[in-house]
Design a protein around this nucleic acid. Sequence first.
DNA 1: GGGAATGTTCACTA
DNA 2: CTAGTGAACATTCC
Length: 245
Amino acid sequence: MPEGPTIKILQEQLQPFVGRQITAADGYAKGIAPHSLQGHTIIDIKAWGKQLLICLDNQLTIRVHMGLFGSYRINDRGKRNASLGLKFDGDEVNFYISNIKLIAEPLDTVYDWTADVMNPAFDIKKARKKLLARPEAMICDLLLDQQLFAGSGNIVKNEVLFRARVHPANIIENLPPRKLTELIQTTIDFCADFYRWKKQNSLRKNLQAHEKQECPRNHIPFKKADLGKTKRHCYYCEICQILYE
DNA sequence: GGGAATGTTCACTA
DNA sequence: CTAGTGAACATTCC
């Protein structure tokens, strides 16, 4: 059940598999013939947003997207059948409830690396432009837009809005220019924290807003509402998170 | 046991 | 045609 930072951790955990040959593959995922992977060597493992990218020696890339329920095991198996299982000499990697696709195009033509919140190449100025290009959109929707913030999910959205003291229902054109930049920077900063906490297995206890009952600043109950076009749960404080007009 | 949860796409409807 | 809605995917946790 991963957002970008989790995928980044997975990507790093899989680095030892670069240079290894897939000796067998199985899985029920549609859109891929596991057998066709057999014999190929992994030449690189990348991540873009919530997607894991396993690059093979035949110009193809296995794209793994774990959606809401997905999970993975390295040298271990879950209870259910895997969407995709990759076997190596003595090792295995299993993905569960994952959307698996093969990508034939060069990755640089498919992915904008400067939009990935976990990539050092993330471009704040470009993000600003993309936000300003959608003046009528709600900030809570745009923080989930993978073209703007690849890797950001509902946890990131709620925590960033709380940290920046911005009400989720703000529309872009009403936000003060400085607030926009602050929101983008806060997203990058929070994702770095998310990554660190997740590695320490302490993500949950460090969250301040997502699925919380009350505002840690004012100790009043958080509002919980499905806002915007995305209609995902927003947790926010009506006192300290400002709705600009 | 019911409901909700870190997500996205697609079919259907008005 | 388009915007909006809901289903589908299928698991885990409370």
